[in-house]
């Protein structure tokens, strides 16, 4: 039995009556606390690297590496999924969440071997982020360069 559009709509209305609302306030608060904690730890690392004499750019890059490492280690210890269950986007958005999305499948698919398992599945979650991240940065870079007159469109593309 497949419902038609009208029946689907009616059923969605019935289901909505029993569906619990998402606990937005709790989620937002926890995401702020968890995400903020990662940022605070990052700031400690940044200050340390800066004090040791790294220029701001490099200190930022080193900080990102450090947080990614922490995320990877916490994933390996089996803690990161618990942190993310509570912290939600606060745990997913920092770069530690990105490393979690790579380390988790790498651990998971080790049983399928190094090539067909780890190699093939490692980027199943992070892959789309990388693909569309690169694509977006390419577009943004193009817009930036156009705006600064550093890139000239070919004649047939100009208005």
């Amino acid at each position: 039995m497949q419902a038609n559009a009208e029946e689907r709509r009616r059923y969605a209305a019935l289901r909505a009556r029993h569906k619990p609302p998402l606990p937005h306030l709790t989620n937002l608060t926890l995401a702020f606390v968890v995400g903020g904690s990662f940022c605070a730890v990052g700031q400690i690392f940044y200050n340390y690297f800066a004090r040791e004499g790294l220029p701001p750019d490099e200190a930022g890059a080193f900080t990102a590496v450090a947080i990614a490492l922490i995320g990877g280690v916490l994933t390996g210890l089996g803690l990161y999924d618990d942190i993310a269950r509570v912290g939600g986007m606060g745990a997913s958005l920092p770069i530690s969440g990105f490393s979690n999305s790579i380390v988790a499948p790498a651990m998971e698919y080790k049983r399928e071997g190094w090539v067909l398992g780890v190699g093939a599945k490692m980027f199943t979650v992070a892959g789309p982020v990388i693909v569309y991240g690169l694509l977006t940065s390419l577009v943004v870079a193009g817009v930036y360069l156009l705006g600064h007159g550093r890139l000239r469109l070919p004649g047939w593309l100009r208005p």
Binding site: P20, N27, D81, R85, S92, V103, A104, E108
Partner: peptide, 17 residues
């Protein structure tokens, strides 16, 4: 979980349902 959703150690927040 690994078959239908995500790797088990991957951190996600699930809705109440």
């Amino acid at each position: 979980e690994r078959q239908f959703r995500f790797p088990t150690e991957f951190g996600t927040q699930r809705p109440p349902t």
